[in-house]
């Protein structure tokens, strides 16, 4: 049996509805909210600020440090145990690597920029939502950036390539599933995150990357509009 119609009626190359906002956390230097379908991500940026212990300091460059956290009742399954686990640490690391090519901390030696990603509600695609939110929050914090990064997951559900899987597709039972989160640097089209879970042919992977680039350019526009909206002239 093949996957002919998506569970929520979307087109195969359509993302879930997206909402984006910046400046949502008052005490942070920069913050953003990114919602894609039922997945919600908040990102808060603090810094550049001093870093301790001292051996973590880099006198040649500033440091980027990311934290990823799924809140205890965010998923549909069991309660997530609070605190960092193996998965969260890995995702924090890949998020950091996805964001590093766009930020420029050469002006801030011996300092750190902290990015905290919190997920109050999840329905697959959390690392992608987290990266999108973090990219906006970094821009909102006024960190020198060469570009912005957008991210989406592409998957193969049975025999079809689909954009932005939700949980029901990720756990599709009538066939095999592959899930590929991809982050794309918007202006240059470079890829800063590419992971793969499941099997995929070479041709399908090429197609998947093309689909990701298209979806990411749409997400990028939403991100930029959200940033500009913060400074829009309000008519009183």
């Amino acid at each position: 049996m093949s996957y002919t119609k998506r569970n929520d009626g979307r087109k195969f190359d359509e993302t879930r509805p997206i909402e984006a906002k910046v400046g949502v956390i008052k005490n942070a230097d920069g913050s953003a909210y990114f919602k894609i379908g039922k997945t919600v991500a908040y990102a808060a940026v603090y810094g550049p600020r001093g870093i301790h212990p001292k051996f973590l300091q880099n006198p040649k460059n500033g440091k980027l440090r990311c934290f990823y956290n799924m809140m205890p009742f965010s998923s549909m399954g069991e309660r997530v145990r609070p605190g960092a686990n193996r998965r969260a640490k890995e995702i924090a690391m890949v998020t950091e690597k996805a964001l590093l090519p766009i930020i420029d901390l050469i002006e801030f030696p011996n300092s750190v920029v902290d990015v905290f990603i919190e997920l109050p509600q999840t329905d697959a695609g959390t690392r992608c939502a987290g990266i999108c939110a973090a990219s906006m929050a970094l821009a909102d914090a006024g960190i020198p950036m060469k570009d912005m990064v957008a991210s989406v997951s592409i998957g193969r559900v049975d025999d079809k390539l689909v954009v932005d899987l939700d949980y029901s597709e990720e756990s599709y039972e009538d066939g095999t599933v592959a899930d590929i989160p991809i982050a794309v640097i918007s202006r240059t089209g470079e890829i800063s995150l590419l992971q793969m879970d499941g099997k995929l042919s070479r041709e399908d992977l090429k197609k998947a990357i093309e689909m990701a680039k298209q979806a990411c350019s749409k997400i990028d526009k939403i991100q930029r509009d959200a940033l500009k909206k913060k400074y829009e002239v309000k008519n009183e």
């Binding site: 230097d29 920069g30 810094g47 550049p48 600020r49 420029d104 821009a139 909102d140 914090a141 006024g142 960190i143 020198p144 950036m145 060469k146 570009d147 202006r187 940033l227 400074y231």
Partner: peptide, 24 residues
């Protein structure tokens, strides 16, 4: 010429700069 941060564009003759809106 590319912007390297969120800011307000300021064009002064041939010079293009952006005035930062945030940051420490």
């Amino acid at each position: 010429i590319i912007a390297s941060g969120l800011g307000l564009v300021n064009i002064n003759g041939r010079l293009i700069k952006t005035i930062s809106m945030a940051g420490r």
